Computed example of a mutant assay.
Amino acid sequence: MNDVVPENYPVVVGVDGSESALTAVRWGARDAAHRHTSLRLVHALGLPSLYVGAWPPSGELREKLAQQGIEILAAAEDAAKQVADIEVETVSDNGDPAPVLIEKSRHARLTVLGASGHGGFLAGLALGSTPVKVASHAHSPIVVVRGEDADSRPERDPVLVGIDGSPLSESALSFAFEEASLRGAPLTAVHTWFDGDAAEMLTPERFAEEWGTVQDVAERMLAERLAGWGEKYPDVSVERVVERGRPHQKLLKLSEKAQLVVVGSRGRGGFAGLLLGSHSQALIHAAKCPVMVVRPAEDRE
């Protein structure tokens, strides 16, 4: 199992009463069952955002939101237990969704949320407004559950992982192999290159060790990154995809027939201090299957 996150931590799922959140609950419940761990369902009431200046929300509104939260968590717990025989814990918090989920992610194997939430009368508090914030600051890997059939896709569909040669993509590769092994699924490792890579990949130092086209060098780079993983996960069959193009464009296309895509929060060319790269943001917003975003270990700490 992956050694970054303690195995006894639960899978945490954010719920807000939307159908998207229930899909995330069902996905998270199945993932928790695969991991032989529990499920923690978290609902945020969003009270801080309801303050008008120094005036807190009325007692009547607070009571209404609390009752609504009880009902939302009960429905989510029922949805989880319909798909997996696991221990389920429910948590209600007064805070706003993004900061609450970021804090709960400190003790999570994964933090899972739907791709979009309800609009409701609490504009801006829907779970759909939080994926990028949570992905940028979470202490665990996060999964944004996308796709209409995300919670029921065949587990024979592949797990995708984007590899760009950075240390962070090595962490993404670790989680991707783990997810594929848990599901008995194949793994598709994707590395793309474009003309802007050539200056970096075909340096004199690189040519001193090897010669070839950009495609040749890219294929060797991917092979180097995959070396050793087959021994650790002999049950996972691996397909290599090396093509010219932008990473998110290829991963978006392949996500149509995948059950999960795993990426680092920022790539090899990311700016120092950048919390979420353009490729991972593109996948969060447009992938056809759930997206796992893995942040650097030092950031998670």
Rank of each mutant, 00 (worst) to 15 (best):
residue 207 F to I: 05
residue 229 W to T: 02
residue 179 E to K: 12
residue 202 L to K: 05
residue 154 P to M: 06
residue 235 D to E: 15
residue 236 V to P: 08
residue 231 E to W: 03
residue 229 W to F: 10
residue 187 L to S: 09
residue 177 F to L: 14
residue 174 S to H: 02
residue 156 R to H: 14
residue 155 E to D: 15
residue 242 V to T: 12
residue 165 G to Q: 00
residue 194 F to R: 02
residue 177 F to A: 01
residue 240 R to K: 15
residue 236 V to R: 02
residue 156 R to D: 15
residue 178 E to L: 00
residue 204 P to H: 12
residue 157 D to H: 12
residue 163 I to D: 08
residue 209 E to P: 08
residue 217 V to E: 05
residue 200 E to V: 13
residue 195 D to I: 00
residue 200 E to W: 14
residue 170 E to M: 07
residue 164 D to W: 06
residue 174 S to C: 11
residue 196 G to Y: 01
residue 232 K to P: 04
residue 217 V to F: 10
residue 222 L to W: 13
residue 167 P to V: 13
residue 218 A to R: 01
residue 175 F to H: 15
residue 204 P to V: 11
residue 188 T to I: 07
residue 235 D to P: 03
residue 197 D to W: 07
residue 161 V to G: 00
residue 205 E to A: 14
residue 219 E to L: 08
residue 220 R to Y: 12
residue 207 F to S: 02
residue 200 E to N: 09
residue 195 D to Q: 02
residue 173 L to Q: 13
residue 212 G to Q: 03
residue 166 S to R: 12
residue 183 R to K: 14
residue 179 E to Y: 02
residue 214 V to M: 07
residue 160 L to A: 10
residue 168 L to I: 13
residue 226 L to S: 05
residue 190 V to E: 10
residue 159 V to A: 10
residue 214 V to F: 08
residue 229 W to C: 03
residue 226 L to C: 11
residue 217 V to R: 01
residue 228 G to N: 05
residue 213 T to D: 09
residue 167 P to F: 15
residue 170 E to G: 11
residue 162 G to P: 03
residue 163 I to G: 10
residue 225 R to H: 13
residue 173 L to T: 12
residue 214 V to T: 14
residue 177 F to Q: 09
residue 227 A to V: 07
residue 217 V to A: 15
residue 236 V to G: 10
residue 175 F to P: 00
residue 167 P to E: 10
